[in-house]
């Protein structure tokens, strides 16, 4: 089995004016290729904080983190940008699509930072959107799409760079029940075709699509 993520004793302390907040107190976490993991836990327990660190958007205060065997705590900001661009796909609760760009352009965004958009990228973006049932919405702006459609555009954007890991922070948090199910079915299909997924959720129904569920409490995973 190929290890994608290997975390040992990861801690995260936020320093604020009000004092220090120890959010993660020693996370041990492994993600293998082909996993579909749901992280659950009460609000404010540090699920998003962990996703930040997993996605190399933030650095742990303490502990080690190997991504595909590479110690990411020793990488520079520039190298982390490159790693995110090539290895990680993100899906957010708020979709975070660029409002003035079309669905197709939104999907192509990561390719700008991979030395520019090429013709084969455009082809792949169209294919992805088609596969996600948006073949007829390529030139639509986000404001012209439903919530579920927007989230599917965001999923296509996460997949355009063929990442090793798809991270989704409450991907169904802003969707109604039927759209949520729709998106989860997409995740399941992706996972079936080999995509590794880690997502957070409050919703047990959403979590039930994952093959493994982990729960955070007091800054640690409960076994």
């Amino acid at each position: 089995m190929v290890k994608i993520v290997e975390m040992r004793g990861v801690k995260k302390v936020y320093r604020t004016k009000a004092g220090e907040v120890e959010v993660l107190r020693g996370i041990d976490f492994e993600v293998n290729q082909g996993d579909f993991i749901a992280i659950m836990g009460p609000s404010g327990e540090g699920k998003s904080t962990l996703m930040n660190i997993l996605g190399c958007l933030d650095r742990p205060t303490d502990g080690s983190y190997l991504f595909e065997g590479v110690d990411v705590t020793s990488l520079s900001d520039r190298e982390l940008s490159r790693l995110r661009n090539r290895k990680i796909g993100f899906v957010f609760q708020q979709f975070h699509l660029i409002p003035w760009a079309t669905a197709l352009e939104n999907v192509l965004l990561p390719m700008i930072y991979r030395e520019g958009v090429r013709k084969e990228h455009v082809e792949r973006a169209k294919e992805l959107l088609e596969r996600l049932g948006l073949g007829h919405r390529l030139a639509f702006k986000p404001s012209e799409l439903s919530g579920g459609q927007q989230q599917r555009v965001a999923i296509a954007r996460a997949l355009i760079g063929r990442p090793s890991l798809l991270l989704a922070d409450e991907p169904t948090g802003n969707l109604d029940a039927s759209s949520s199910k729709e998106v989860m079915r997409v995740f399941q299909e992706l996972n079936d075709s080999g995509v590794t997924i880690v997502m957070t959720t409050h919703d047990p129904e959403t979590a039930s699509f994952a093959s493994k569920v982990k729960v955070i409490r007091n800054g640690r995973f409960v076994e």
Partner: peptide, 16 residues
């Protein structure tokens, strides 16, 4: 802010 952070999440460097 969110869009700038989004670009960075997807690989934009400070210089970009």
């Amino acid at each position: 802010k969110k869009i700038i952070a989004l670009r960075k999440a997807y690989g934009a460097t400070n210089r970009d």
